[in-house]
Design a protein around this nucleic acid. Structure first.
Lengths: 212, 212
DNA sequence: CCGGCGGCTGAGCAGTTGCTTAGGGCGTCC
DNA sequence: GGACGCCCTAAGCAACTGCTCAGCCGCCGG
């Protein structure tokens, strides 16, 4: 029964490696799977606990409420994706190279961690008010990182962007939505999608006439 | 109390005008609002009924189950958005004009009807198996319409698209995700977003070197 | 050998869920 | 004018919800 629980949980990802004790981590992984499959409200504490191979009551030793589980998933998930984006955007190379790398890795993260990403993106409304505010701050961070690259390229004349704010939103939206439709059984790998998307985004911002 | 119910329901849209009797329509509109706000599973039949100004039992005179309400919303919503897309794509003009018009109107629909669209896009998993299959068929239709335009422009040399299937998916995803983040209190109108997006998509598929 | 403590369980509580049933008001047709 | 059919309600059922609590197990320091 323990191995059964481990098997079910194995579809989740490695973002929660640091969480201890072991039972708390297994509960988080079970919750990620359950929330992604059925949504926060449709998931029962009994479901989460049984995926972790434990009784329902054990959940409350490690987490105060079901919502706290969602918050931990949301927090860790956002932190990881912001870190990926920041690292890609802060690296060296031209603005075009930084933009392409940021989009490619951000998209790849959303595909590879599509279960976590789905929870992170679509269950925000289920968070309590305070937790929600904290998460919104992290989301603003990622938007600012991307906008920074676009503004830099625009100022340098490397990009031609009529509406930086609107384009930032569109690119973010494009990347994030990968988590909704991506399936590991699909024909494209996360990296292939990332590469395709990076190309499409570069085209979005490329100057029209070859003036550069 | 009836006017209160009408007021709350007024935030929904006109896609369900044809539904009769009146009570069945009010229930549908109430369900759209409730599902969009709180999600299908978190919405109670009591909530839906009270938004329509009726008792919980009245719901079951017009719909067999709560899921049937979701199905009707999904079906009508998909039919409307496919119709918008088809009309825009089948019109006359160059492939670029057809593509721009299709994206602009498809995006505008998702912004204007963002409550309906959100339900339609994010509560698919709550549908029963048979209903789900029917909806998936409609979704394939819209993808085919968009792909048709891209293929036509690609064949005519008007577009330069390395991966038609992948680009179709990306454009669909971009348009659909508008429903997730759009807010009527935001700074951009549905039509402005549509116009911006049409421009971005045209850039995605424009030939790089001015060879045409 | 023992005492305590962190991790866990079985049983269960109060509240809520989707949905049913018995019956009431009211217009409409013979 | 009476029987019918439509639309609706009050009350309630069985199942399930998030969460609690008293107590059991095994490990670890003395």
């Amino acid at each position: 029964m323990a191995s059964e629980a481990e098997r079910r949980v194995a579809t989740a990802d490695e973002s929660f490696e640091g969480v201890s004790p072991d039972a708390a981590r297994r509960l988080l992984l079970g919750a990620v799977d359950a929330f992604a499959e059925r949504g926060f409200h449709a998931t029962t504490t009994r479901d989460i606990a049984s995926r972790a191979g434990m009784s329902p009551a054990a959940l409350y030793i490690h987490y105060k409420t079901k919502e706290e589980l969602l918050f931990q998933i949301s927090r860790v998930g956002h932190e990881r994706s912001v870190a990926v984006l920041a690292e890609a955007a802060d690296g060296d190379g031209s603005d075009a190279e930084r933009l392409a790398r940021a989009v490619r890795l951000f998209v790849r993260w959303h595909a590879e961690h599509h279960t976590t990403a789905r929870v992170v993106q679509y269950e925000l409304a289920a968070l309590g008010a305070e937790h929600y505010e904290e998460i919104v701050g992290l989301r603003r961070r990622s938007e600012e990182i991307l906008r920074g690259v676009l503004e830099s390229g625009h100022a340098a004349g490397e990009f031609e962007v009529a509406d930086v704010r609107g384009t930032t939103l569109a690119v973010m939206s494009l990347c994030i939505d990968v988590a909704r439709w991506y399936s590991p059984h699909g024909r494209r790998s996360p990296d292939e999608i990332g590469t395709l998307y990076a190309d499409l985004v570069l085209r979005m911002v490329a100057p029209r006439a070859a003036a550069g």
